[in-house]
Design a protein around this nucleic acid. Structure first.
Lengths: 245, 245
DNA sequence: CGCCATTTGTGAAAGCGTTCACGAGCTCTT
DNA sequence: AAGAGCTCGTGAACGCTTTCACAAATGGCG
């Protein structure tokens, strides 16, 4: 029952051809945002040090990350903003505007639909769906909420590749199954449930309560430390410089 | 400018006394949720295997994680649900209901205020704040939106330790500074900016656009693999079995 | 009571990710 | 043209995380 499937060949393939480490992939969007801001400011070149400062990481990390994509920097000068930006966008696949379906138009679904960051970063909301018939037809962020019955048709016709689940936890798995069955191969899950998906489908989970609990842990650590010894609190501060998810 | 502050003593302290690894801390909330569900179902004991299935991790991880808190399991039997649940809650510091301040009551702020998961997991919303005077006084999730001027007073009188930033990126740093100056030592940042904070303050960042971009990367990887060679796609599928954040 | 099935707890090993340190290469100045 | 100064790219070292494998401990059963 241990599911120790061939973990061997995995790395062989990953490192072998075009193998970019997960940790690097998670930081590429950060660099991309900084580059966008720089481009808007008219800056044409940027050093790894500056890029690092903007993204909240170390310059060594920036250089190593970018070296994974190839050599797009110039020694003694830095990176060309436009060129690098384009390169990262291409690697992330955000040049082709991907279609996204949002399921569940409650509080969170509303927020997601109205969130400008999605469209600004190369994503297009192909549809909003809700199981509640009373909510269907409602206008949210300029789009009409559709019934769940339309899901399959929209996913297919709009070639939706990413599904966002913003439903209550109880409905999440069922919704996920329908998304996957319709052809969605990536899921962003806001419900506090672990989703079971077939191989080949990616799931990322965002749980707000978890984030708060992690912060809470460090809070209690800080108060404890304060009552015991000062250097602990100090050392802790250093640790928490990185604010990655 | 490199900020290579004493990274030495850090681990010395972390491992030394009550040093729980970050990776473990990030999973404790997952276990806690599963335990809550089990308790609601009337289950009294649980094995590492079951707990692992519920949390979407491996059983080895569960055992190693829980062993960090001490020995709360019984060999041959498993863990006692109530006992373990209490132990984790205590370690995370969610037994004492922490006060949270939410700044920025736009789309996202609304969603956060109305999100039941916060109060259900031991957090209390001490106040909603917005810079827009037109929005102040408005009722959101049964609470009145307060002007930013009230921030310091509320943080102090309600002993708010966690601040949630749901403002536009432009205002985030300024809001963060005010929160920290008022005494907040943990920040959950939804704005797509890197926040500068003094030592001793924790920041966690949640960026929805980043999550989508990471998924987009894997999508392009999948399509590329499909067009190039089959085994790559297969290996990738194995990789993505884990759906952790 | 002794054995067997079960499951925890944990060293040891392997895998990743980060940091360090420095050579390589570019630009500019003299 | 040569040297100085800067910054990228990268192998090597280090530390954290995960995985593996198994001894230790428990409960049940004959």
């Amino acid at each position: 029952m241990q599911a120790s499937v061939p973990v061997h060949r995995l790395r062989a393939e990953r490192q072998g051809l075009r193998g970019i480490p997960e940790a690097t992939v998670a930081r590429l969007p950060l660099y991309l945002r900084v580059l966008s801001d720089l481009a808007d400011s008219g800056v044409t070149t940027v050093s790894s040090e500056e890029l690092a400062a903007g993204a909240g990481v170390t310059s060594a990390k920036v250089r190593k990350d970018l070296s994974q994509l190839g050599s797009y920097g110039t020694r003694g000068v830095g990176y060309e903003v436009d060129c690098l930006s384009e390169e990262i966008s291409r690697e992330l696949g955000v040049t082709q505007h991907r279609a996204v379906a949002i399921v569940g138009v409650g509080n969170l679904g509303h927020a997601l639909a109205g969130y400008g960051g999605f469209t600004a970063r190369g994503f297009r909301i192909a549809g909003l769906f809700d199981a509640d018939p009373g909510r269907c037809g409602e206008l949210v962020a300029g789009m009409r909420v559709r019934p769940m019955d339309d899901l399959e048709q929209v996913v297919a016709s709009e070639t939706v590749s990413i599904g966002v689940i913003a439903t209550p936890a109880g409905a999440a798995q069922q919704v996920c199954d329908r998304l996957v069955a319709s052809g969605v191969t990536s899921v962003l899950n806001f419900a506090s449930t672990v989703l079971a998906v077939p191989a080949g489908v990616d799931v990322r989970k965002v749980d707000l309560a978890v984030e708060l609990q992690i912060l809470s842990f460090h809070e209690t650590r800080k108060s404890r430390a304060a009552g015991v010894s000062a250097p602990v609190a100090e050392a802790h501060a250093v640790l928490t410089g990185r604010a990655v998810s």
